[in-house]
Computed example of a mutant assay.
Amino acid sequence: MRKKLIEFRNVSFRYGDEEPWVLKNCSFEVYENEWLAIIGHNGSGKSTIAKLMNGLLFPQEGEIIINGQQVTEETIWDVRKDVGMVFQNPDNQFVGTTVQDDVAFGMENRGFPREEMIKRIEQNLTAVGMQDYRLTEPHRLSGGQKQRVAIASVLAVSPKVLILDEATAMLDPKGRQEIMRTVSNVRAEHALSLITITHDLREVVQAERVIVMNSGEIWDEAIPREIFSKKDALREIGLDVPFVAILTDELKKTGMTITNEPLNQEELLEDLWTLHLRT
């Protein structure tokens, strides 16, 4: 049985005493070496969850436990050693004049020996395919390259959990695919827990589990295939449905018997080929 790394226990949050609740009585867990996707429309509370996990915010009600420690102002620096976060705009995270300086920054703050820093800079830039840009100024990079460097900077301090908070929102479709491919490879190599927070259902097909947020509450929690099967309900709460799911529905209307809920084009093609062989 996998260890719990993050626990939300009846967590509620609002940005002011007179403001509406952004989160309402939320409870869930994140496990060791798990890929969890948290999705929802803008304003559903998903990005607030990310900030609460990293101690950028504190709940008014409930408890948050990270690797056995309750998140408080006293424990926040220990918590942040276990939880790394990559934001929507990587420019907000850059502090170094070169790529390698930026990757080194977090390690310097934690007092890593110089030899270890050099080793980790090389390892983590290689992991995200940016080793040839180590002396490049960050502002000269493309959006996708910046996100890769941001991921390398977080990985360098060896967190147990990596959170991507709308990390692909500013990228074009090709850039999104590259980042998600990079993240998948990095997760497999480092055996860390990954939390992707997005409103784009296309990014969650690789996740083991999905939490759907709506108006500050957990609307549903299931594996991706089960979530994608609820197309009409997802549309009602403001979420786009992947094209593969829409195409599958249209094919079913023509009388085709597609028993599974395909998560991607490859699965749909496999189903169609199997159907062809049977007829």
Rank of each mutant, 00 (worst) to 15 (best):
K81N: 07
K51F: 01
K231S: 00
Q88M: 09
I227Q: 09
R80Y: 12
P224S: 00
P90M: 02
Y15E: 01
V157R: 05
G216M: 09
G238Q: 04
K160D: 10
L56A: 08
D101F: 03
E261W: 12
S142T: 00
E116L: 05
F105A: 10
Y133N: 13
G40D: 03
E203R: 14
S12G: 06
F228R: 02
I179N: 02
E108V: 01
F112W: 03
G40P: 10
I118L: 08
A188K: 11
S229D: 04
R209N: 12
L164V: 05
E137Q: 09
M107C: 07
I163P: 00
G55S: 00
V149P: 09
E116H: 00
D165L: 09
R278A: 08
N67I: 09
L36Y: 06
V186A: 13
D132P: 12
E266I: 05
V183L: 15
V157L: 07
F112S: 01
N25Q: 14
F105S: 07
K3H: 06
S47G: 11
T168V: 13
E29C: 14
L164S: 06
M180R: 12
M53Q: 09
Q131G: 12
G111H: 04
I258Q: 04
R278G: 05
S153E: 00
E73C: 00
P159F: 04
D165W: 08
V149R: 11
L201Q: 11
E267Q: 10
F28N: 12
A104D: 14
C26N: 15
G68N: 06
F105E: 11
E137F: 04
E18Y: 04
W219C: 12
A104H: 08
D240I: 05
T75V: 05
E7M: 15
E178T: 15
E108W: 01
H139A: 05
Y133R: 13
E108N: 01
R110S: 02
M180Y: 07
I66A: 00
V128E: 07
G144T: 04
L125Q: 08
A167L: 11
D249G: 15
F13H: 05
E32P: 02
L5I: 06
V183M: 15
A50E: 13
K252G: 09
L57Y: 09
Q123N: 01
A188C: 03
S44G: 14
T198A: 08
S229K: 13
A191D: 08
E178A: 14
I65V: 09
Q123C: 00
V79A: 02
T259Q: 10
L269I: 11
W35T: 11
A207W: 04
K119E: 01
L192Q: 08
V86C: 13
M130S: 11
N92H: 00
N33E: 11
E115Y: 06
